[in-house]
Amino acid sequence: MSGCPGSRTIDFSEKTDQEGSETGKRPSQLRQWPIQMHLVSPQAPYFQGKDILLAADCTAFSLGDFHKDYLKGKSIAIACPKLDSDQEVYTEKIKALIDDAKINTLTVMIMQVPCCFGLAQIAKEGAEKASRKIPVKQVVVGLEGNILSEEWI
């Protein structure tokens, strides 16, 4: 195996050790629109004083219980640190979310691939530039949808 771990082809369609229940409907926990980092405004009412989830695009598709376990009760912004352009805007938006929207906490959820750690770096830079200080948490999701780590940074 070689090449970029972020775009390497891996097939785990044969995975059989699946636990959990598929019964019942699962309501969406999304409480806002838009969600893409370039489209959201730190002035939006759904950010004021809230707990924010900054999620890498792929995380929601990887994590089976993304809505229930991580999105519930939070406002969200999504981004891809590998493919998105003008990412310096992201740093400024995070600073504005902390200083102007006075968000309570920031949880950065990324995939385990190295390029995804760029999003955590952007979050750290935004938090360092802000004059207010808030707790920032990093959650790393494995390629098969498992949580690899969850820690305050």
Partner: peptide
């Protein structure tokens, strides 16, 4: 909870 961590952080500050 995450919310409580943020709130406690603010109150301690």
């Amino acid at each position: 909870s995450t919310t409580q961590v943020g709130e406690m952080f603010r109150r301690c500050n």
